[in-house]
Write a protein that binds this DNA or RNA. Structure first.
Lengths: 205, 205
DNA sequence: TATTGAACAATAATCATTTTTTGTACATTT
DNA sequence: AAATGTACAAAAAATGATTATTGTTCAATA
């Protein structure tokens, strides 16, 4: 029995990619290879076609422009990360541990693969991505169930609105992935957990 | 009696600018004008000299390189913002109101002046600035006294470490200035206040 | 019917060349 | 003393001709 990847309704918006279509996968894989090697600016549709062993025309059949292809590659990368992380999350019991894990996973993800390569080759492009609110939209559907659970167990205040806590957690997680140190050094797992414990729960350690 | 601008020890590091020196002010003013008009890339030291009606040699006397001049202009902009905001802050009684005010002030500051013009002319440069941790360093010395006060009045949990809350407030404020909406629409003063109330205090509205 | 490949104008990247700017030095002026 | 202005080599940016890429169309192919 094949378990389908988790895709929340709020992510469906428009333009959902069909990862079951082998042509889509071939294009995305080829594009990812190219971006990894040369960055976005220096990869052409022709190069993607060559690497994927298909025609340029076919690529344009699925992605109406280079920009859309790049968006698709990034989107898949993110969805993979979220699915992977979501699976690991079930092993953790507390919200604090879940956020800690997510931040550490996020940092790890940034140090390898597309983002790491872009950080070297085209840092400005990456910076622009990170400042686009759309970039974080997909992370939002992730948290509400975990937050309700934490409210049920009394780990966090059940009177606070779930959408507020969701927003807070995403903002914090993003910030912590980007900046391991802002005021306090939060690079290590231990420090990060202690910080989140105090900051999210605001009662006892 | 002239009250000196507030410059915390942690901001002194090295390279503090002397705003009492009229030559420094003239250079910074001229540089600011140029960046406002043309952006960073398209302003030359010669142009700054012409606008400021001084010699290129004099500029290099005070700023060893263009990069340093730009840094000085940004630094002054930030310090002005922090001083202005800090003054207004004393009128507010609660931490929630202080953070609300700071975020709104921060957004306002971004919509005019250097940052707004850079956002149009050189968005990548601005994006790179925003992702540099140093950019936020100056905001940190700002908060501890206000946080201690809020702990004393019982507004926030006095058991949580002051440096942790400081870190949290800066991360949150930065995020809220950058992204008025992440999960929840927090563009309006009212929504922002309600959000911060719940998220920072975690007890009663 | 999906994919291919070739043709095509419009747009964008590349590259060698020219021009400007940078950062330093120093003699001159205020 | 501080500010100016000129000169200078090295670095960076503007320029313009050339090449490559984009996105579209469509007939041929599998």
């Amino acid at each position: 029995m094949v378990k389908a990847a988790v895709v929340a309704m709020s992510d469906m918006q428009f333009n959902a990619l069909n990862y079951d279509d082998p042509m889509v996968v071939r294009i995305l894989d080829a594009g990812e290879q190219c971006i990894l090697r040369f960055g976005i600016r220096r990869t052409s549709m022709g190069e993607v076609a060559r690497v994927g062993k298909l025609s340029r025309g076919s690529i344009y059949r699925y992605f109406s422009a280079k920009e859309e292809l790049v968006e698709g590659i990034i989107r898949r990368q993110q969805e993979r990360f979220l699915n992977r992380t979501e699976q690991q999350l079930d092993k953790e019991t507390t919200l604090v541990d879940k956020v800690t894990l997510s931040v550490l996973a996020g940092r790890k993800d940034m140090q390898a693969g597309i983002f790491a390569s872009l950080a070297e080759v085209e840092p400005e492009t990456l910076a622009m991505m990170f400042l686009d609110p759309k970039f974080y939209h997909r992370s939002l559907s992730f948290w509400p169930p975990h937050i309700r659970m934490a409210q049920a167990t009394g780990e966090i205040n059940p009177q606070v609105r779930v959408d507020f806590v969701t927003d807070l957690v995403v903002r914090l997680a993003v910030s912590l992935v980007m900046f391991p140190k802002m005021g306090v050094e939060l690079a290590s797992r231990k420090a990060l957990r202690a910080y989140l414990q105090q900051v999210l729960c605001a009662e006892a350690s």
